[in-house]
Structures are given as structure tokens and as C-alpha cells.
């Protein structure tokens, strides 16, 4: 998941559009995009039925699967986004709130990358 997230985030972070989108979004847009990323990450890996789809672990309820794999995966995506943004100097002098916006924007492709990597590997 880390490799997939890094693969997509690394391509997008250097572009100006990522931070431009973050600046243009209101907080409500950012929240909606964050929720969408988490839902897509979960659905891609466990529900849609792409080849390589994972099954819920034995005896795993929806909640425990969601907590253990999806949230952990989204956390990985966010951390990767933060690392990539930081290493490209996008976070210099920027307030925490704007960094959070950028993370959610970049976290969207990163989480899709993480989901894809999960399906492929």
C-alpha cells in the first residue's frame, strides 16, 4: 500500500494544481473529499470485485476490517502525502490548516494508489 501511495503521490505532488486545488476548496469540500477517499479505498479493496479482491479476514466484522485495513491504509496514504509534500518544500511557512487541506487533496490519489497496490500485489 505504501508503494502504491508513493507511486501516485510522487507524480502529483510536484504539480502546482495540487496546492491550487487545496487553496480553492472550502473546508466542507475537503471533508467530503476525505470521506470519499476512505470509502473508495474500502470499496476498491473489499467490495467491487476487481480481480485480486481481498476477502474479509476470518471472523472479521465490517468495523474491524474497516479499522484495521482501510483506516490504516488511509493513514499510510496521508503520511506518504505529507512526506512527499514536505520533501518538495510545499509545507514551508504554511499553516497547519492549509497543510491539512493539501494532505486531503493529495491523499485522494495516494489512497487510490494504495488500493490498487493492494489489489495487484
Amino acid at each position: 500500500m505504501l508503494a502504491g501511495a508513493l507511486f501516485l503521490a510522487f507524480n502529483m505532488a510536484p504539480t502546482e494544481e495540487m496546492i491550487l486545488i487545496a487553496f480553492q476548496m472550502t473546508p466542507w469540500h475537503a471533508l467530503a473529499l476525505g470521506v470519499l477517499s476512505i470509502v473508495l479505498l474500502h470499496v476498491f479493496v473489499y467490495s467491487i470485485g476487481f480481480s485480486g479482491q481481498e476477502n474479509r479476514p476470518e471472523g472479521g466484522t465490517f468495523l474491524s476490517t474497516f479499522l484495521h485495513f482501510t483506516l490504516a491504509g488511509y493513514g499510510v496514504a496521508l503520511l506518504v502525502s505529507l512526506y512527499v509534500l514536505w520533501s518538495f518544500g510545499r509545507t514551508d511557512g504554511v499553516s497547519v490548516a492549509e497543510i491539512a487541506n493539501m494532505l486531503v487533496v493529495l491523499g485522494f490519489p495516494a489512497s487510490l494508489g494504495a488500493a490498487t497496490a493492494r489489489l495487484v500485489v
Partner: peptide, 10 residues
Amino acid sequence: LASAIGLLLV
């Protein structure tokens, strides 16, 4: 641990 970190971040 991983899910706790993920949950905290989210």
C-alpha cells in the same frame, strides 16, 4: 498499532 495511528491521523 497501525489502525490506531491511522485513526489518529484521520
